[in-house]
Computed example of a mutant assay.
Amino acid sequence: MSMVKLRERVERGKVKKKCCKDNPRCKSCPVVAHRLKKQGALKLDDAALAKALKKARKW
């Protein structure tokens, strides 16, 4: 998934309904979306968003 699609999906709130709690969490997980919003990562460029996504999925 490209960073543009990820950014659009999280901003619109198009994430899964329930978290699967896998490790690492999937990109469409509501927990990952919340962590990205909390970090303010959606306003960053693509490289910084990729790094923030990696951290949000492992955390």
Rank of each mutant, 00 (worst) to 15 (best):
M1K: 11
M1H: 12
S2H: 10
S2Q: 09
S2D: 15
S2K: 13
S2W: 07
M3L: 13
M3Y: 11
M3E: 13
M3A: 10
M3N: 12
V4Y: 11
V4E: 15
V4I: 11
V4P: 00
K5T: 10
K5W: 07
K5M: 11
K5F: 09
L6S: 09
R7Q: 10
R7E: 11
R7L: 02
R7C: 07
R7A: 08
R7V: 00
R7M: 03
R9N: 12
R9G: 05
R9V: 06
R9I: 04
V10K: 06
V10P: 02
V10M: 03
V10F: 05
V10W: 10
E11H: 07
E11I: 15
E11Q: 15
R12L: 14
R12A: 15
G13S: 06
K14A: 13
V15S: 09
V15N: 09
K16L: 12
K16C: 13
K17G: 14
K18W: 14
K18S: 12
K18L: 14
C19K: 09
C19H: 05
C20G: 11
K21R: 14
D22N: 13
D22F: 12
D22R: 15
D22V: 15
D22M: 14
D22T: 15
D22K: 15
N23L: 12
P24D: 07
P24H: 07
P24Q: 08
P24E: 08
P24Y: 07
P24M: 04
P24R: 03
R25H: 09
R25V: 05
R25S: 10
C26L: 13
C26I: 10
S28Q: 10
S28W: 13
S28T: 10
C29Q: 09
C29R: 04
P30G: 05
V31Q: 07
V31F: 01
V32W: 08
V32A: 05
V32Q: 02
A33T: 01
A33Q: 02
H34Y: 08
H34M: 09
R35T: 05
R35V: 02
R35W: 00
L36K: 05
K37I: 04
K37D: 01
K37W: 01
K37M: 05
K38W: 00
K38T: 05
K38H: 01
K38P: 01
Q39P: 02
G40C: 03
G40K: 02
G40S: 02
G40F: 04
A41Q: 04
A41F: 03
A41S: 04
A41I: 02
A41K: 01
L42F: 02
K43Y: 06
K43A: 15
L44H: 08
D45I: 01
D45L: 04
D45N: 14
D46V: 03
D46A: 14
A47C: 00
A47R: 14
A47V: 11
A47K: 15
A48S: 10
A48P: 00
A48N: 08
A48M: 07
L49R: 03
L49H: 01
L49G: 00
L49D: 02
A50C: 08
A50S: 12
K51P: 05
K51F: 05
K51I: 08
K51C: 06
K51N: 07
A52M: 03
L53F: 04
K54L: 07
K55N: 09
K55Q: 14
K55Y: 07
K55C: 01
K55G: 03
A56N: 01
A56Q: 04
A56L: 02
R57V: 00
R57Q: 13
R57W: 00
R57H: 00
R57C: 00
K58N: 09
W59C: 03
W59H: 06
